[in-house]
């Protein structure tokens, strides 16, 4: 038994290092001048750190404003996407109607064309709804993009919940609404956590839609700010500043992840089954 655990630790450590090292390397690269980056390993990388990259990223890049904008867009998307998906998934998991399986497949099918192809039609839709250059337009697009996966995640969780729970609640005189909020929802928290996390990560890093639909510098999310430094036609990409901005932009994702990770903690769902 002991050896099995040791093997587990070893394998996990290998994977953990595999995940960590390139990201650590990014951090090291974020502290280099362009010249040092291209001269590796002849210059001493660990001698003179270029903290200036962070200053450039923070001061000139408008990253602060970008992070705030990203938070608004992502926060709005989270609320709309997860709420709508949870409601829909509950209906799919707990009510019988014809063509349910087909509807579930159909919902996934909406994700079958590449995002690039949708840019122009989406621009037209936003225009006719007078939502160009607004957060609302972006949030609706991102919500539509993330809802299918969220429906599937939540549906998976709801259908694992024993029907007796609902039955008992209804017999106790709870309305559909109270059954849902008081009994079902708390038990589906791990699913909501997962849905929130995936929604967050998908929305936080996107840049094509904001770039296309926003026309006000003060509304750009941080990803668009970051792309600004990539492929400068005169001096080339300033990787130090790009990676510095990336480190700053990744911190919220990391925090979010640590936060939502709580919902994966063992026992939430299995406790429900036992109870």
């Amino acid at each position: 038994m002991k050896t099995k655990l040791t093997v587990t630790y070893v394998i996990l450590s290998v994977f953990a290092l595999g995940g960590l090292l390139p990201v650590l390397w990014m951090f090291v690269m974020s502290l280099q001048t362009p010249r040092a980056l291209n001269s590796f390993p002849t210059l001493n990388w660990f001698k003179d750190f270029e903290f200036n990259n962070y200053q450039i990223a923070l001061n000139q890049g408008g990253i602060y404003q970008g992070l705030i904008n990203s938070s608004i867009i992502t926060g709005g998307t989270l609320i709309i996407s997860v709420t709508f998906a949870t409601l829909a998934a509950y209906a799919l998991a707990n009510f019988e109607f014809k063509g349910k399986a087909l509807l579930l497949i159909g919902i996934l099918m909406t994700q079958l064309i590449p995002g690039m192809a949708a840019i122009v039609p989406l621009f037209d839709i936003l225009k006719s709804l007078h939502l160009i250059n607004t957060y609302t337009g972006l949030i609706l697009i991102f919500a539509a993009r993330t809802i299918p996966l969220n429906i599937w995640i939540m549906h998976g969780f709801f259908k694992e919940l024993p029907a007796e729970l609902r039955e008992a609640a209804i017999i106790d005189g709870c309305s559909v609404y109270t059954t849902f909020t008081r009994i079902i929802l708390p038990l589906a928290l791990p699913g909501i956590g997962a849905a929130c996390m995936f929604t967050f990560m998908q929305t936080w890093i996107d840049f094509i839609m904001p770039l296309t639909t926003l026309f006000d510098q003060n509304k750009f999310p941080f990803t668009v700010m970051l792309y600004k430094y990539v492929g400068d036609p005169i001096m080339g990409t300033n990787y130090g500043v790009v990676f510095a901005s990336a480190v700053i932009g990744t911190l919220p994702t990391l925090l979010m992840f640590v936060f939502f990770q709580r919902f994966f903690v063992k026992g939430l769902t299995s406790g429900a089954v036992k109870g």
Binding site: V120, I132, L211, F215, V224, Y227, K228, V230, G231, D232
Partner: peptide, 25 residues
């Protein structure tokens, strides 16, 4: 001045989508 700053790799796309959507600067 209402100035949008984008990177060179995004410039063409921003200009063409703006033009096609009737939103040129």
């Amino acid at each position: 001045l209402n100035m949008l700053v984008v990177g060179y790799p995004q410039l063409y796309q921003k200009l063409t989508t703006s033009a096609a959507g009737g939103n040129t600067p």
